[in-house]
Design a protein around this nucleic acid. Structure first.
Lengths: 138, 138
DNA sequence: CATAAAATTTAGACAATGTCAAGAAAAAAA
DNA sequence: TTTTTTTCTTGACATTGTCTAAATTTTATG
């Protein structure tokens, strides 16, 4: 993915080979991988890359908002290259995490609290796939 | 606390001394403690209680819906004895977790998804304590 | 270019969190 | 009581994440 290089640069990140390898693995991966899973993937191309480098790189990507990091009860945090605001649903049967587009849930209004300025919010849902009906692309 | 015993029994949990000790620590603690923090607390009364027992007991309490378990990006899962549906807000400055009563956020409707039966949902918000009084129209 | 400075990467130790299995102890049932 | 079931413990292990100091690479400077 050659525009990974452009993405990194426009985020002010120097596109080193390792960072590009992490980006290539993560951008476009909508399976909500954990950090160690990403590490496993990157090592197929860069067998010598260290765990710390992958963790550092992911932290950097999150800080620069190239990916989202979410903790969804599954033990390890997961990374999501889909950075538009969206919700998540955890399948109670399989543990699979689904992205739920923002528009698919009708929220009456943005949360407005008396004592806090809310900078970000999202729904975490738990549920089960409906028996019948059309299949959702995973 | 003597009604902890009743709570356990009505949940079908035999009220052993260890379980009562965990319950005494956790019920009424609205600070969102982690499992290890609860373990630390319980050991003040039962210095010999093992870590596994506390983890097992917490899992049991969660399964029987006596407490909620939430992962809020902070590394460790936290436990919340307030089991009515409610949201959470993480203070970006301090990491402190606040309970946000359900009624304090107006949601237009329950999330209704085409492909899933949603059994549970809640908001995770991130924000900062407001400096002065309320500024926004509700 | 040569050298210095800065940024990146590494290894590996360490910490924190969570899980598991096998046996001991306690409680309940027979 | 004896037997059976449940609970609890120990301690090892796995997973997840952080950190530091040194090595390497890249960039900046003379």
């Amino acid at each position: 993915m050659e525009n990974a290089r452009a993405k990194l640069r426009s985020a002010g990140i120097r596109p080193t080979a390792h960072r590009l390898a992490v980006a290539a693995r993560l951008f476009g991966d909508r399976t909500h991988p954990t950090a160690d899973r990403i590490w496993d993937g990157v090592r197929e191309d860069f067998p010598a890359i260290s765990r710390a480098t992958v963790y550092n790189t992911l932290d950097l990507f999150v800080e620069r908002k190239l990916v989202l990091r979410r903790a969804l009860d599954s033990g390890a945090a997961v990374y999501d290259p889909f950075t538009e605001p969206h919700h998540h649903l955890v399948d109670e049967a399989t543990g699979h995490v689904y992205d739920i587009p923002w528009g698919e849930v009708r929220l009456g209004a943005e949360p407005s609290l008396k004592d806090f300025d809310v900078s970000e919010f999202y729904l975490v849902m738990r549920g089960r796939r409906r028996a019948a009906g059309p299949k959702r692309k995973s």
